[in-house]
């Protein structure tokens, strides 16, 4: 569409963006509030950040979340890449319908169902609940997102490059690592980041599958939030939002630059 935006269009965008960003902005602003009350501005202060770093339970939860996120995102990215390859490269194989069903269904499946079913699995096989059960559960949930992101990139990747490598005597394995992987690397990186942030955010699945000593950050935040609004939660939320926003914007800029380079070639 080439017709420029009308006043109505601009108003719709502005209102929509305000709706999306105002609550987050207020949350960040009030994390620097000296007063304990959310509606009263008591001056600028970083005391809640100080309190945060004194809170051992919170720090432990952050540690658990980072470990779970890193390991589960890595598993999800490796399996997601394989799944994406199978979905784009291989026309029909036995069980393809079931396979693509298993890839797309978790994207929309309510988390309570996923959490409950995974918990029953761990109980049935007698696996002690803890950091590893949360990790495996997160890998399962995020592998589907990773597969979809990588699949989109693979669909636009020129297959003849890989065929050329095969003609030049490379094994399929070598061709993948020397030609395909470097080409889809940005999507693989994006998939890892998406998997990591989804793991970082998850409350429901973690609540079902974690055990003693593996309380994740969202679980900790949730138990505090149930008691009411608390400036320390604002502080930890602000840090989390800052971390994720920096990562996403950096990834966006890298992609823009890469697009500019490929366009020139």
């Amino acid at each position: 569409m080439k017709r420029g935006p009308s006043t109505f269009n601009i108003a719709a965008i502005a209102l929509g963006m305000a709706f999306l960003y105002l609550p987050i902005l207020l949350l960040v602003v009030f994390s620097f509030n000296a007063s304990k009350l959310v509606t009263v501005w008591g001056g600028f202060s970083t005391r809640w950040y100080g309190a945060l770093f004194q809170d051992q339970q919170m720090l432990d939860a952050i540690g658990v979340t980072l470990r779970v996120g890193t390991v589960s995102a890595t598993i999800a990215t490796v399996l997601g890449t394989l799944a994406a390859l199978a979905l784009t490269r291989v026309g029909g194989f036995r069980g393809r319908l079931l396979f693509s069903g298993m890839i797309y269904a978790p994207l929309v499946m309510p988390e309570v169902i996923l959490g409950l079913s995974l918990l029953l699995l761990f109980v049935a096989v007698g696996a002690p609940r803890g950091i590893w059960t949360v990790t495996a559960s997160h890998a399962t949930m995020t592998l589907c997102y990773a597969a979809v992101v990588i699949q989109a990139r693979l669909a636009s990747f020129d297959r003849s490059l890989e065929e050329a490598a095969r003609d030049l005597g490379r094994t399929p394995f070598q061709a993948f690592f020397e030609v395909t992987l470097p080409n889809i690397a940005p999507a693989v990186a994006a998939a890892w980041m998406l998997a990591f942030t989804l793991s970082l955010d998850d409350l429901v699945i973690a609540s079902f599958t974690s055990g003693p000593g593996s309380t994740t950050l969202p679980m900790r935040i949730y138990s505090q939030v149930r008691l009411g609004v608390n400036p320390e939660i604002n502080a930890v939320s602000t840090l989390l939002i800052g971390l994720v926003a920096t990562g996403v914007i950096a990834a966006y800029l890298i992609q823009q630059r890469q697009r500019a380079t490929t366009d020139r070639v």
Binding site: L79, V90, F99, L121, A136, A147
Partner: peptide, 18 residues
Amino acid sequence: GLPALAPFLWLAAFFLFP
């Protein structure tokens, strides 16, 4: 279908079977 094997088995164990 070989590349599908590992994710297939993973999803069968952690998604379908539960």
